[in-house]
Write a protein that binds this DNA or RNA. Structure first.
Lengths: 340, 340
DNA sequence: TTGTAAGCGTTATCAC
DNA sequence: GTGATAACGCTTACAA
C-alpha cells in the first residue's frame, strides 16, 4: 500500500454532514438507520469513491480478513483447484487468500507454521491433505486460537472442522467397474504409509473384492509414494510376476502414469493386456496415451465448502454437517475387458 | 484473527519500565538506543512472547505487507513454481503472499482487478504471463499507485519492473540441437496470437533456421492455443502432409503432448519418425512416453528475483537490472536423428 | 435514529 | 537517548 490520499470515513462524514459512526453504520449495513440518511451517505461514498481501509477495520475489530491455505501437496493441479474453490467461496466477501506451503519433511515445520499463525493471526486456515491429517497441526491451531477446516479423505475431526470426500466408496465403485469388465486378478499400487487417503482407497478396493468373493493377495500389492517414479517401480514389481494382474488400481494418477510407463517398457498393450485406473483426475490423466480412467477428487467443491465454513458464510446447519463430497469415476481409455 | 489476549507493546513498555516508543525503536532496530535499554526490552519481549500486530503496524505506517500474485495462467505447475519462488524471496521478511487469479476472457477482468487493488492496496504485485503482457494492467497499477513487477519472455517495461527470460535464445539453442541431429524439415506449433512468449519462441526458431540457411514455410506452421487439444489439432495438420516434418518444436509442453498423441494416432514412432521438443518442462514432460525434450522456463528464480524487487530487498543495482534469467534445454527421449 | 468519546496497537513528531 | 502526545481509520460502548 503506497501512501495515498484515499478518502477516509471522516471525509464521507463531513461531506454528508453526519458523524463517523453513521457512516460506519452505513458501511456495516446497520438496520437502525434513517432511509434518507443512508441514501445521502451512500451517495457521498459513491461520489468520492470511498473504500474502507481493511487494516483499520482489522485493528478496530480485533480480527483480520485473511484466510490461509496451508498445504504440503506435491500435486500442483490439486493445490490450484483448492485455491480456486477457496476463492470461489470467498468471492464477494472481504476475505483474502494467503498461501502458506510447508515442508512436511522439515524438522522446523511446526515451528514455521506456529510463526505464521502467531504473526499473521489469519481469521482461519484450510488444511490440505496430507498435512491436514497431522493432528499436531490441528492441535496447534486450537492452541493458538485460529479456526481451521481440514480437508481429508475421511472424517477425522468435528463436523464443523471437516470437509471430506468419500474415497472409499469411489474406489469401491471403480473396482466394481473392473469386476464388471471381467477382471479377477486386480493389483493395487498403494499410497504411502500414514496417508489417510491411501488407506481409504485401499480399503475401497478390498471391500469391493471381498464383496465379489475375491481377496487381495500380498503379491498383488505394491507400495508406492504417490510419485511417478514410485509408480514405475511398483508397476515393475506387479508386472514381472506370473500370472500377471489383468488390471491395476493406482492410488493416484502420477503412479498410474508410472505403471503405464512400466507396462510399455514390457511391451504390454494398455488396455488390451492391462487395464489401469488412477485417482485424482489430474491433467496428465487426459494427456497420456491411452487416456487414463480415473477417479475425480472433488477438490474445488470441497474447498468452496471449506471457505463457507471458515468464514461462517454457511448457514449453521450446513456448517454443522461434515460436508461429504463425492468422488466420481471418469471413464476413459485405459480400461477394457481382460484378454481371452 | 480471533480475539485474543496477546501481549501488546504497552505490556512490554510497562514491564521493561520504558515508553512505547522505546519499545517501537527496539522492534524497528533504531540505531539511537542505549545498549542496556535495548537488551532489557528484548528480554521482556522474549519473556512474554510479544509479537507486534501487523494490522496496527499497517495502519500506523500507512502501508501493508501484502504481496499479490496476479495471474491468469492455465498451467498449474508454473503458478506453483512462481508461488514458491515468491515465497522464497519473501522468506524472513514480514510480507505475506496473497493470490489473485483473474479471468483474461472475462469482460469484468479489469474491474475485478481494480477492485482488488483498491480494496486491498497490496504493497506490490507480481504480474504473471500472459496477463503481464497486457499494458492496461500495468497502467492500472500505476494509476492506483501500486508497485508491480512483470514476468515475461521479453523486456516490456522499465528494468525495475521486469523479470524476463530469454525464450528466444533458448529456442534458438533448441533448434540448433535439432539441426545438429540432422533435421531439415522442422515444423512449429505456434502459441496463440498476442502472447509475447509465443512470438519470442517462434522468432527463436526462425532465427536458428535462418542462420542455417533454412526457412520456415507456412505449411510447417500450425497455430495452437497452448492447450493439449490444440496440440492434437496442430499435430494433425503438420503430420497429414507430405513430406512430413521430421521434427516439430512446440511452444509449450501441453501442445507437445498433443502432437505426441497425434503422432501415435498415425502410427508414427517418436522419436524415430518424428522428433518433438516442448517448452516449460512441466511434470507431464517427464511422465509421458517418450519423455519429452523441452526447454525449462526459470519460473522459480524469476519469481524469487521479482520478490526482491517488489519488496526493495534487492540492492539498487540489482533492482535496476532487468533480471534476465536463462531458459535452458532439458534433453530427454523425444529427439533423435531423422530416419534414412 | 444519530452522535460523542474512548479505544484498537502501532509509529511519527517533537520536545526534554 | 528517551518519552509524552498525537495521529492512523475504523468500531464499540454509551448517551442523547
Amino acid at each position: 500500500m503506497m501512501k495515498t490520499n484515499q478518502p477516509t470515513i471522516n471525509d464521507v462524514a463531513r461531506l454528508a454532514g453526519v458523524s463517523k459512526k453513521t457512516v460506519s453504520r452505513v458501511i456495516n449495513r446497520s438496520p437502525l438507520l434513517g432511509e434518507d440518511t443512508r441514501r445521502r451517505v451512500e451517495q457521498v461514498i459513491a461520489d468520492i469513491a470511498y473504500i474502507p481501509n481493511p487494516q483499520a477495520r482489522a485493528l478496530a475489530l480485533g480480527r483480520n480478513f485473511l484466510i490461509g491455505l496451508v498445504h504440503d501437496n506435491p500435486n500442483a493441479q490439486t493445490v490450484m483447484n483448492v485455491q480456486q474453490g477457496l476463492l470461489e467461496g470467498l468471492h464477494g466477501s472481504e476475505f483474502e487468500l494467503v498461501v502458506r506451503p510447508v515442508d512436511r519433511a522439515s524438522p522446523t515445520m511446526l515451528e514455521d507454521l506456529t510463526h505464521f499463525l502467531e504473526r499473521q493471526r489469519p481469521f482461519g486456515v484450510l488444511l490440505m491433505p496430507p498435512i491436514s491429517e497431522d493432528d499436531r497441526i490441528a492441535a496447534l491451531c486450537t492452541e493458538i486460537g485460529c479456526r481451521y477446516v481440514r480437508m481429508s479423505s475421511a472424517i477425522i475431526d468435528a463436523p464443523e472442522r471437516m470437509v471430506a470426500s468419500n474415497d472409499r466408496d469411489a474406489v469401491r465403485g471403480a473396482t466394481d467397474y473392473l469386476l464388471a469388465q471381467g477382471h479377477r486378478r486386480i493389483g493395487l499400487v498403494a499410497g504411502p504409509q500414514g496417508f489417510r487417503s491411501a488407506q481409504e482407497r485401499r480399503e475401497g478396493l478390498e471391500q469391493a473384492l471381498s464383496a465379489a468373493g475375491l481377496t487381495l493377495p500380498r503379491s498383488l500389492v505394491a507400495d508406492g509414494a504417490y510419485t511417478f517414479d514410485s509408480g514405475i517401480d511398483a508397476g515393475a514389481r506387479l508386472l514381472d510376476q506370473w500370472p500377471r494382474p489383468t488390471a491395476i488400481f493406482c492410488c493416484n494418477d502420477a503412479m498410474a502414469a508410472g505403471v503405464l510407463h512400466a507396462a510399455r517398457e514390457r511391451g504390454l498393450d494398455v488396455p488390451a493386456d492391462l487395464s489401469i485406473i488412477g485417482f485424482d483426475d489430474t491433467p496428465i490423466a487426459a494427456q497420456i496415451w491411452p487416456p487414463l480412467t480415473t477417479v475425480r477428487w472433488p477438490s474445488v467443491s470441497m474447498a468452496r465448502a471449506a471457505a463457507l465454513k471458515l468464514t461462517g458464510a454457511a448457514s449453521d446447519d450446513v456448517t454443522a454437517e461434515p460436508s461429504f463430497l463425492a468422488s466420481s469415476l471418469v471413464r476413459r481409455g485405459s480400461v477394457a475387458p481382460p484378454r481371452g
